[in-house]
Amino acid sequence: MIDEAGGTLALAVHRDERGAVERLVQSYQNQLFGYALRLLQDPSDAQEVTQDAFLRAYDALTSRYDANRCRTLALRPWLFRITRNIAYNRRRARRSAQEEAFPEADGWHSPALRYESGAVQSLEMQEERALLEHALGRLSQTSRELILLRFVEELPYAEIAVVVGTGESAVRGKVFRALRQLRAMLTEMEAHDAM
C-alpha cells in the first residue's frame, strides 16, 4: 500500500516548502517515538533516536532523493525503518558498553505507565491495559515488535514487511505466531487472576 499523502508530504519537504518539516514531524512523531521507546525502554534515548530519524529523513529527502522518488515514497514505513535502524544501532552500542553484569538489560518495565495520557480511563480499562502490557513484556523481542507495529501502531502487513525487512508472507506468519503466544498468555494470566 503506497501512502499517497505521505508521498505528497515527502515532496513538500524535498522542495523545502514552508512548514513542511513541521508537518512531517507532527504527523509521525507520536508513532515513531512510541515505537522507539518500546524498543529502547528509555525516554531520553527514544527522543534522541526519533529526532535523529527525522533529521536523517530530512537529509535524504532534500539532498539524495529526487522529486520522483519522493513522490512515490511510502513515507510511513520508510520513517519507521530509519527509526528502527538507529534504535537498533544504539541498543547494540549500549549493550556492548554495558557490563554483562546486567543480564536482564532486555527487561520490560512498561515505559508507558510513566507516560499516561490525560484521558480518564475506567479502572477496568486500566487493568486490561496493564494486563496486555504485562503479557507483551513476556513475549520475545521479535514478537513484541511485530505486535506493536501491527496492533498499537496499526500498520498494514505490507508496511510492516518494509519496516522489519522481510517478506510480507513471512510477516503474516510471524504476527500470527506472536498473536497466538500473546493470546495464550492473556488466557493464562486471567486464569491466574481469577484464582
Binding site: 507520536n30 517515538f33 512510541g34 527522543q47 508507558a112 507516560y115 491495559r129 496486555l132 498473536l179 493470546r183
Partner: peptide, 21 residues
C-alpha cells in the same frame, strides 16, 4: 487485543518538534 492495543500508544515529548526544527 486490537481494541486494547491502541491504549498503549504514547505521545511524543512536547519539545520534539522544536528540537528537530
Amino acid at each position: 487485543v486490537a481494541a486494547l492495543a491502541p491504549q498503549l500508544r504514547i505521545d511524543a515529548p512536547a519539545d520534539l518538534v522544536a528540537n528537530v526544527l
